[in-house]
């Protein structure tokens, strides 16, 4: 039976639990699941990370290639983000070119990283107007257990933090150096279950949520990216509370990221 059907049968239970401040996996409303970050697993990538958040696993690889800059920013490198919802991650993921959910996911992660100016693009210029580094962030979802947004942002940030600029291989300089990183974006995703908002939805919760809100902060507590999803709605108060909650709830992910990037 598909995950969607099972979750629909659980809807009443999940919503009733949420109203009492409980979850199917025993967590509190604003608690993240266990997170683990492993880096540097992929030898062919300039940076890589495998992040597990509860039952969700994402593998992210960062590649750097020399390319031509955009005409409107001749002295700046650029970046491209993709997400692949691999068929093995869920019976609901179909083969074929990326559909809207994968594109939205990649774009939200992209915004979190781009708008926080995590990567110093000026530092990626090789030859003004001619040659710059292009950063490719490719995220492979291996196991879908809910909340891909936060898991992917964390995987991308971890992989970028470990990435080296392959100067030697491209004959640009005689030493590979760290990718210039100036900021640490972390996202927190909330789901609306009935009339209750919970952090870090698991698989079944995502199947029955009516609305989703992702909030990305930098390490100074400033907002860097947001995305509301699904056809349900949030009240103004719910949004403001979620933004405030995200500022403290992201500490646990920030700590994991810091430890993994030491």
């Amino acid at each position: 039976m598909s995950g969607q059907t099972v979750a629909n049968l659980m809807r009443g239970h999940i919503e009733a639990l949420a109203a009492r401040g409980e979850r199917t996996d025993g967590r509190g409303a604003n608690e993240f699941r266990d997170v683990s970050i492993e880096t540097g697993l992929i030898g062919t990538a300039e940076g890589s990370a495998r992040v597990t958040l509860g039952e969700t696993t994402v593998m992210c690889g960062v590649k750097l290639l020399a390319g031509t800059p955009y005409p409107d920013s001749p002295g700046r490198g650029s970046m491209t983000t993709t997400a692949e919802l691999a068929c093995l991650a869920s019976e609901q993921f179909e083969p074929g070119p990326p559909r809207e959910p994968a594109i939205e996911l990649a774009r939200v992660v992209d915004r979190g990283i781009r708008e926080s100016q995590m990567i110093d693009f000026e530092g990626l210029c090789i030859e003004h107007g001619e040659k710059v580094w292009v950063v490719f962030i490719d995220m492979h979802i291996l196991d879908y257990g809910g909340n891909l947004f936060d898991c992917c942002t964390l995987a991308a940030a971890s992989a970028l933090a470990h990435a080296k600029i392959p100067n030697v291989q491209h004959g640009i300089a005689d030493k590979d150096v760290d990718l210039p990183i100036s900021c640490w974006p972390i996202s927190c995703t909330f789901a609306k279950l009935g009339e209750t908002i919970v952090l870090d939805p698991n698989h079944d919760e995502e199947m029955v949520m009516s609305a989703r809100l992702t909030v990305a902060h930098d390490e100074n507590g400033n907002l860097r990216a947001m995305q509301k999803g699904y056809n349900g709605a949030f009240t103004v108060d719910e949004i403001k509370t979620a933004v405030k909650t995200a500022r403290t709830a992201d500490k646990v992910l920030r700590k994991a990221l810091k430890e993994a990037t030491k």
């Binding site: 062919t44 990538a45 690889g61 490719f136 490719d138």
Partner: peptide, 10 residues
């Protein structure tokens, strides 16, 4: 399927 980062040239 091969991941984009699985080979030297993306």
């Amino acid at each position: 399927t091969m991941a984009p980062f699985s080979v030297n040239d993306r």
